[in-house]
Amino acid sequence: MSILVTGATGTVGSLISQRLADAGAEVKALVRQPGKRALPEGVEEVVGDQTDVPSMRAALSSVRTLFLLNAVTPDEVTQALITLNLALEAGIERVVYLSVIHAERFTNVPHFTGKQTVERMIESFGISATVLRPAYFMQNEHSVQQVIEDYGVYPMPIGSSGVSMIDTRDIADIAVAELLRRDRASVALESLTLDLVGPTAWTGTSAAKVWSAALGREIAYGGDSVAAFEEQMASFGPSWLAYDMGLMMAGIQQYGMQGCDGAVERLENILRRPLRTYEAFVQEATGTV
């Protein structure tokens, strides 16, 4: 019996596939197009689409544990619910689901409310699952690094409420720990929800200072304009996604993104090491380590 990884060629999924293979697990990677990307040695490619029922029935056969990740798409909820229903049909009792932090609070943000709907299904059906609820990814900063370096402005309008950014490598390591714990258990384990956060809450101003220190020159915070952010996003992507991300930024400004009490200690106990810091990420990104 194997572990099926959805989103297996993405930022988080590719790390998880590699780490599971390194740990000696039997891994299947769900891909839409065969041979599009090289997979880690020992990982079996399984071609399927989460909206195509026959292909998912085949992909979920001989699977004991499911890692469910759904990209932000207009049909994200449909993909996730079909996959979970088919997993139940196949008798799969062990699931790790990548959700998002504060899904119950950011109710006007489409991809947050979509993930909350999936969490509700997991709970209502009594699925034995670990729900991972990550905050803002540090690696999101790669998309604006050129702007930071060329124009001296940190453009993400994250405001001043505090965002505990997390490194995607830590997300992958925690996901793998939970997948292996569930997969190797003699029985299905109790459900668990984890807020995935970094060790420090950052504001737009304090994040800009980290980039200033790494680059050796002043980087200014670009301000809290969500409209300008949405307009910039829409210039190189679909308008629905730009709008979704703009609503998320407005929510971040209002509520922040910070874990529950004890979240950092709990994660570091799982990892058996400290969480990666934003300062270290920026130094690595700029080659100033």
Rank of each mutant, 00 (worst) to 15 (best):
T83R: 03
A234Y: 06
E149H: 00
W202I: 01
Q139C: 03
I252H: 08
A29N: 09
A103Y: 02
G114N: 03
I174E: 11
P110G: 03
L69W: 04
P157L: 01
A135V: 12
L20H: 12
A87V: 09
L189T: 01
Q253P: 11
S14W: 00
T193I: 09
T9W: 04
H102D: 13
R37K: 13
Q254G: 04
P54A: 10
G7S: 13
R217A: 10
V176A: 10
R169T: 13
E123N: 13
M165P: 05
A228K: 12
V153A: 03
I127A: 01
A59V: 07
Y151W: 05
E284V: 02
R272P: 05
E279C: 05
V147Y: 07
I3W: 02
T286S: 08
G259S: 13
E218F: 04
E149T: 05
G114P: 05
T107I: 11
L88P: 03
K209M: 14
P54W: 07
I166V: 15
A208H: 00
V95Y: 12
L81R: 09
F236M: 05
R181L: 02
R120E: 08
F125H: 11
H142T: 13
A208F: 00
L81K: 10
A71Q: 02
M245K: 11
F106A: 03
M257H: 09
L247F: 01
V197F: 00
D167Y: 11
P134S: 00
A250N: 02
I148S: 02
V27A: 10
S235L: 05
S160W: 12
M1W: 01
V77N: 00
L88K: 14
T203M: 04
V163N: 14
V96P: 04
A90N: 13
V109C: 05
V147C: 02
V197M: 00
D244F: 08
G287A: 13
P199S: 09
F106T: 04
E231L: 07
F106W: 02
I219P: 03
Q253E: 09
T203K: 09
S128A: 10
T6W: 15
E93C: 06
A90F: 12
G246K: 01
